[in-house]
Design a binder for these strands. Structure first.
Lengths: 344, 344
DNA sequence: TTGTAAGCGTTATCAG
DNA sequence: CTGATAACGCTTACAA
């Protein structure tokens, strides 16, 4: 491998000049710049990442910490990762992938060894122990998700409370008065994962404000769990005319269960989902849904991180405004009349 | 941050001694080792990754290249990534995540900048241009997947041909004579992605050998696609009694479509799936399936890579033997009799 | 068993 | 606008 010194020799300039041609940190005459560029290409020179990191004390690497459980909102995590990697590359950064089983140790490790310049955390709990590790490690970080106390932290997330509100609003406009919210698995609420709690709060507040009769039922990802939860809802609250569903994994089973129970969507039961658009487009009928812009979360996280590292900004909470797309899974509640436009 | 020199001074030894305590590359008396260890802890010393990489010309980093499309076998990719990261950590390696949009450039980049010591490639096509890039870059690599000509390459994959054979064998034992293979999306076959082609060949060969009447129908991941493909199969080949399904995304729609068509599983139609066990457990009835051991693929890939880097081994193709688990989605073909055990 | 010292390939400061 | 040169923090012969 050619080194910077080789290039300098070949071009007949000092090593520092080559470095400056590369970094642009001081002006170089057009003539020598060309000469250097030529030598670089001729020798097929590529700067050594380690040497750079050592001399500049910047690794040009971001660390992304993802949850280990392969069963949890997997497509969403994958999209986030893709957003992070592609955006990071645009800023000249590479991305190190860490799993959560290393936990706070991983944060300490990459920070204190200068393996990464900054960290992106996902799967944020309301009280997340890793936040403390980040503070102590003194490394720049952005959270995808919002903890209970985001003071001084940079966070990006979908505005889940607003997302919940949108669902309820849409349903009440269609005349639904008895609604069930089928949420994430029990364990998610026990761990106080931020997005689940906020969604629930948003839905509850909106339901209370509009006098909607609401129940919340956590639900695991299996067919049986979906069957159990649905059966219980239909038995205990037979007047239920609408479902809000957050656990994307159970949407397909739910729809076929409803069909088997003789309740067609949307004639008898309306469904609003909180899931990636892509998924909402894959069912029949297509789902009215609030989009989960996972890739954008990754992109925005990197943007925030860059601003934080370059401009020294910090403490910003970016909540992406959710959008509800009406598709085929929601309709006027049975036995109600379409509201006149003037009443809206 | 404390440096190795600080530690040496604090412990009253030479810098090299500290280094050797860390690496274990030469023996150190128990006494000084303890002293050094104490100083390391007291000063909270962590070696600088860049400096290490520069001095040793080993970054202790692996690069993992994943496909960009977030729509393709996502859970599988995620599992692979998790397997790779956790195993790599056990060997003291970190993992750099690259997306395929950088393509061969990404390979060249990390190789020639010494950002990574080795590469793991996924989503391997039969003729994969990146293989050439790897060769030219002169970097160690392991493929998860097997190209047409794996000479000199280290590869890990499920034995998809055998997996296909197992499906057919299981079905013929149950008396099925007319079988449809609902495969991956058309584009996968056009791109000649290895696993899809091998599965198809395995199934075709086994069907031919046993005189099974087989059709292969590629299928996209949407509900409509599944509906279309299924309708066509049932119309053109009404005697079809069994389905082999590889595109995991369409399993839920397929099952509810069959229900709507009045064909119950497994009484009228048997289904064998090629998918992760976890998925096979989530439907009702549970699916007879050949497991896709994604996390193990990641683990094995790293194992291979380590052996290759340390022992200089190369050119091994590891095919993981598939296993078929009988669950509730397959049964004796309608109108046939159970084969006496002696006939097996 | 331990110390000495020469790199490793950049960056950035200080002169010119 | 450009050149020397001292770091950067660690590894690894080579000596002792």
């Amino acid at each position: 491998m050619a080194t910077l010194a080789d290039v300098a020799r070949h071009a007949g300039v000092a090593a520092s000049t080559v470095s400056y041609v590369l970094s642009g940190k001081r002006s170089v005459s057009e003539a020598t710049r060309r000469r250097v560029q030529r030598s670089i290409e001729l020798l097929n020179y590529h700067p050594h990442a380690g040497a750079r990191a050592l001399a500049s004390s910047r690794a040009n690497v971001l660390a992304l910490i993802v949850p280990l459980r392969g069963d949890l909102y997997v497509p969403v995590m994958m999209q986030i990762a893709i957003g992070v990697v592609t955006t990071a590359r645009q800023f000249g950064y590479d991305v190190l992938l860490l799993t959560n089983d290393e936990g706070s140790d991983g944060i300490r490790r990459v920070a204190s060894s200068s393996r990464a310049d900054a960290i992106i955390l996902t799967d944020i709990g309301m009280e997340d122990g890793r936040i403390d590790a980040v503070r102590k490690a003194g490394i720049d970080a952005v959270l995808i998700g919002v903890p209970a106390d985001p003071a001084g932290l940079d966070c990006v997330d979908l505005d889940f409370a607003e997302a919940g509100r949108l669902c309820v609003e849409h349903l009440t406009r269609l005349g639904h008065r008895t609604v069930a919210f089928i949420g994430e698995a029990e364990g998610i609420y026990r761990r106080h994962v931020g997005f689940a709690e906020r969604t629930l709060r948003g839905i509850r507040a909106a339901a209370a404000a509009r006098g909607v009769d609401l129940v919340h039922r956590p639900c695991e990802g299996s067919y049986e769990a979906a069957a159990g939860v649905l059966a219980r809802i239909l038995e205990e609250r037979p007047h239920t005319t609408a479902l809000i569903v957050q656990n994307e994994a159970i949407i397909p089973p739910l729809m076929s269960l409803l069909r088997m129970a003789g309740r067609t969507v949307p004639e008898h039961v309306s469904i609003v989902a909180l899931c990636p658009d892509q998924l909402a487009e894959q069912t029949s009928p297509r789902l009215t849904s609030v989009n989960m812009p996972a890739q954008e979360l990754g992109t925005r996280a990197v943007d925030l991180l860059m601003r934080r590292m370059n401009d020294g900004d910090s403490g910003e909470v970016v909540l992406i405004p959710p959008g509800l797309t009406v598709r085929g899974s929601t309709a006027q509640a049975p036995g109600t009349e379409e509201q006149p436009v003037s009443a809206l």
